[in-house]
Amino acid sequence: MDVNVSLTVNGKKVTGKAEPRTLLVQFLRETLGLTGTHVGCDTSQCGACVVHIDGVSVKSCTILAVQCEGKKVTTIEGLAKDGKLHPMQQAFHENHGLQCGFCTPGMIMSAVDLAKRNPKPSETEVREWLEGNICRCTGYHNIVKAIMAGAQASHDLKG
């Protein structure tokens, strides 16, 4: 049986129908058409689906849409402001932090959470933080470089 779910997604209030078993990622992709958030596994391990809920990184494949009632969700589509990429997105672009790009939305959302907690992460800290983000192209080298640059740039922007 469908229920109504109301939440704020990328700054906009939305209401949609969902079954209790509907995952947040399904709600985002299928109901709201926000297909930037990807699904890469069935076992909550790959992190392609990471979004922020009230500012904290969460695997959107492992939370029900109904659990997000009244919460603020940010997806990869919500990072750019006024047509300008977020510093972390820009850093992925400049450092070529991707190959096929499938893992990239989750990588960037995780990285933005890290940068908020730790504005100058070391390479080791970045690699440890990426424990839950798997890149099938195994291009971690440039991803790590991008995140270190992106964290610095986010920090500089804030001043």
């Binding site: 904290v56 969460v58 890290l114």
Partner: peptide, 9 residues
């Protein structure tokens, strides 16, 4: 335990 997103929930 697990990874950051798992630890957040």
């Amino acid at each position: 335990i697990g990874d950051p997103a798992v630890r957040n929930r």
